[in-house]
Nucleic acid binder design. Structure first.
Length: 801
DNA sequence: CAGTGAGCGAGCTTCCGCTTGACTT
């Protein structure tokens, strides 16, 4: 048996370290925390000293048993969990649960997985830092108390199955606040003036230094330009430079993968996990931008050899964020020699991104020469300005340029034609275009993570799960929204003639953005009203300060909790007793037809509009209509609400049966002879006519006929259908899997019955199905061929901007 | 998969932060 047992958190890490340490060491992983607070409401002694009750998680029992056995056999146990609060707690829990002897237990830390770092750690062991452990306990206990006391208040006052917490509730608030900010936004417009000149056969653009608030002013300006002369007054050449971004952290990786590839944060993380497991990148849950000395040296070599010495600029980045705990390195390729990898297309793309970002961070700054030409207009004091950029030295831009969240299309760097001071210019045209101001952008998953990180809320390991939680609870939806049309004015001076045009543009269209739901808004308002402290963006930062004091031994952890819990719990009790139940009811006005009041509120099945009050009179029953996706009780207008009651609408008659059009959970549909047909986006549910409806119904019939691959005489209910994932068995309302290798023409009724029976049995054993199956992102199916790494010569092309 | 919304009340829900699989209608 091995003399030394080393315990780390991650199995992939264990494998690597084992190689560095040789045969005297067995390296095992504990897979993160092995113990947590007991499940129910009694895990914390709130009546006394707040002492917690811990339990070994069910899925950790086996690994704990194995570690117990190995630790008994070893001469020395090295606790090598991460060097941060959580890591320290993991080591402490291990020593408690495994009942480790202090004399044969050592605590070691390293924040990079390199041989020198590991060996150095082994030479410098220490004991477990109990203060740091206490800081973690305080963190854990506080989160449990907040979550498990607030959530039940929501069950009583808003809706069951809701949740609240230090992190998620603030995340929702950010989205709610942003939505309201956008709804209240005042769109102002001003006229931007751009002139185009002909300089020696080339076009050159120049913009006026000011914008005009009114069309009249813009018009007057163009009038004065009619016979003006345009002269170059000044030419200024300014050198400037651009620096590469630091290598990725979890948050910046999520942002770039979202901007450049459109991945959601959980997609990015599961692809990165695969790359990590195959030893291709360093750990992907990190808040550090630090690179190991080994990595910096190897990047320097690689860059010098492949790009030339002047492209190399070894650089040590430091993290600015206060809340960062830096237990790991930045995310980087394990070996810079692996320019390309084998794997799924997604894995290749993400690896490429990580690779380029890391290598660029060690490359020289780009040198840019900026030219600014000032142009005077005769008779007017305002001046035009033309700017041009020349890239003198590309540096890191050879491989990578970071994207921005701001989607304003900057036309990019243009070169100016050769110009001379005093030169007069040939005007092609001057155009004044009405431009509108824009509100702050709605959050994407990744930009929300960025904001949370700035506020110090949440950790790299929880960003993606938090974003999933707030969507699962229905507080927030990720959606595309169609833009709206608006008119703008454009006035053009060309050949001494002024033309005015009214044009249309689309604005406010959104792709994969986060929108709050009614529930999200109600819960945010309710919590903000009664639990201001928890909803404050600075709450996490202020408790973090206290945790730090605990870690430094300046504060006793349960005293801190006691001070928080007293007033907090009093508010919980008070709110439970006195606050009213929230249903977001809002009066919109009166229905012009019936004169009855129209209002919206939140019901069991979601938000709905109602005409008329509830009453006992059977003949006076109110009318109901569900709100459509994207409509909120907070903002819906009377007109829009009345519109909802125009459905279901009788469209016509076909084969002796009525055709009706309406909008359901999955969008607009037609119903005919109790069969449903979706109405495509190109048609309008309020305007669709009989002929078009029949066309759609017949189209659906053909599609259904094609869907049927096989039926059985023995039971007409049993069919083989062609679905999104290939052929499957359908019987009544149930669907059953069919193995992929099964040949359809050989399939008999007996075989099908067997499959159905077998599946019924296994599904009966499973836990009763929850109301809604959680959506999961598909994990990449194909694993990367182990260690088969193509070392190619520089396939890195210039990064897209 | 699809037109609901009353009221009573069983029993359940829920946090954040470490980790990796499981498993897709």
């Amino acid at each position: 048996m091995s003399k030394n047992l080393v315990i780390v958190e991650s199995p992939a890490k264990a494998k690597t370290i084992e190689k560095f340490l040789g045969s005297d060491y067995t390296v095992k992983s504990c897979f993160g925390h092995i113990r947590d607070l007991a499940k129910g409401d009694d895990a914390i002694n709130v009546k006394g000293d707040f002492s917690p009750t811990y339990e070994v998680n069910d899925d950790k029992k086996a690994i704990v048993a194995e570690l117990k056995k190995l630790s008994k056999e070893a001469n020395m146990v090295w606790l090598a969990s991460d060097e941060d609060r959580e890591g320290e707690a993991i080591s402490w829990h291990l020593s408690e649960v495994l009942k480790l002897d202090d004399k044969k237990t050592k605590r070691i830390v390293f924040h990079e997985i390199t041989k020198p770092a590991i060996l150095k750690a082994i030479e410098n062991p220490r004991g477990i830092d109990k203060n740091l452990v206490d800081a973690q306990q305080a963190r854990r206990v506080l989160d449990r108390l907040v979550g498990f006391e607030l959530s039940p208040v929501l069950w009583r006052k808003v809706k069951s199955n809701l949740s609240a917490g230090r992190v998620q509730s603030v995340a929702v608030r950010l989205i709610v606040d942003r939505e309201r900010e956008i709804n209240l936004f005042n769109y102002n417009s001003a006229f931007r003036v751009v002139a185009i000149f002909n300089v020696a056969g080339k076009q050159m653009e120049a913009e006026l230094g000011k914008r005009f608030e009114t069309e009249k002013e813009a018009q007057a300006f163009l009038e004065t330009c009619k016979h003006a002369t345009f002269t170059i007054k000044n030419l200024e050449v300014k050198p400037s430079e651009k620096s590469p971004a630091p290598p990725f952290t979890t948050s910046t990786l999520q942002q770039e993968a979202s901007r450049k590839m459109g991945y959601g944060v959980s997609t990015t993380m599961s692809i990165a996990q695969k790359l990590y497991e195959h030893g291709l990148i360093t750990y992907m849950r990190t808040d550090s931008v630090n690179l190991s000395e080994m990595a910096i040296a190897s990047a320097k070599n690689y860059i010098s050899e492949n790009f030339g010495e002047k492209y190399s600029r070894p650089m040590r980045y430091t993290t600015k964020n206060d809340s960062a705990q830096e237990a790991h390195e930045a995310i980087r390729p394990t070996y810079f020699e692996n320019v390309e990898i084998d794997g799924t297309p997604q894995e290749k793309r993400l690896y490429d991104l990580i690779y380029k970002r890391a290598i660029a961070s060690q490359m020289a700054k780009a040198q840019i020469e900026k030219t600014v030409a000032t142009i005077t207009i005769s008779g007017i004091s305002e001046q035009l300005v033309a700017t041009g950029e020349v890239l003198k030295f590309d540096g890191f831009l050879k491989v990578y340029l970071e994207s921005t969240d701001d989607d304003t299309e900057d036309e990019g760097s243009k070169m100016l034609p050769p110009l001379k001071i005093g030169e007069s210019l040939n005007l092609i045209q001057i155009q004044a275009t009405e431009k509108f101001t824009r509100p702050s952008a709605r959050y994407t998953e990744a930009s929300l993570v960025k904001r949370l990180e700035e506020l110090g809320i949440g950790r790299p390991s929880t960003y993606a799960p938090t974003i999933s939680t707030i969507q699962k609870r229905g507080y927030v939806v990720k959606e595309d929204r169609e833009g709206k049309e608006r008119n703008f004015v454009q006035i053009t001076l060309k050949n001494n003639d002024i033309q005015r045009q009214e044009k249309q543009e689309k604005f406010a269209s959104e792709k994969s953005k986060l929108f709050p739901s009614d529930i999200g808004m109600i819960v945010t308002d309710f919590l903000s009203k009664h639990f201001e402290q928890i909803m404050d963006f600075g709450f996490t930062a202020s408790v973090e300060e206290e945790f730090d004091k605990i870690a430094r031994g300046q504060l006793v952890w349960n005293k801190m909790i006691e001070k928080f819990y007293g007033p907090f719990h009093a508010t919980v009790t008070n709110t439970s007793e006195h606050a009213e139940r929230q249903n977001a009811e809002r009066n919109l006005g009166f229905d012009p037809e019936s004169g009855k009041p129209v209002f919206v509120k939140l019901g069991r099945y979601g938000p709905f509009a109602q005409i008329g009050e509830n009453s006992d009179d059977e003949t006076q029953k109110p009318r109901y209509a569900s709100l459509r996706a994207g409509q909120l009780t907070e903002t819906i207008t009377l007109t829009d609400a009345l519109e909802l009651f125009k459905l279901p609408r009788l469209v016509g008659n076909f084969e002796g049966k009525d055709i009706k059009a309406a909008i359901g959970r999955f969008g607009p549909y037609l119903v005919h002879n109790s069969k449903f047909v979706s109405i495509p986006k190109t048609d309008d549910v309020f305007a669709i006519d009989e002929a078009r409806a029949i066309e759609l119904i017949e189209g659906k019939r053909i599609a259904d006929a094609n869907k049927l691959l096989k039926s059985f005489d023995e039971d007409p209910e049993v069919k083989i259908l062609n679905g999104r994932w290939g052929p499957y068995i359908s019987k009544g309302k149930g669907n059953y899997k069919l193995s992929k290798t099964q040949k359809l023409d050989e399939l008999t009724f007996a075989m099908v019955s067997e499959i159905i029976e077998a599946e019924e049995k296994t599904s009966a054993k499973k836990v009763p199905a929850k109301t809604v199956a959680p959506k999961k992102t598909a994990a990449p199916k194909k694993a990367i061929a182990a260690k088969k790494v193509a070392v190619k010569k520089l396939p890195i092309k210039k990064a897209k901007t």
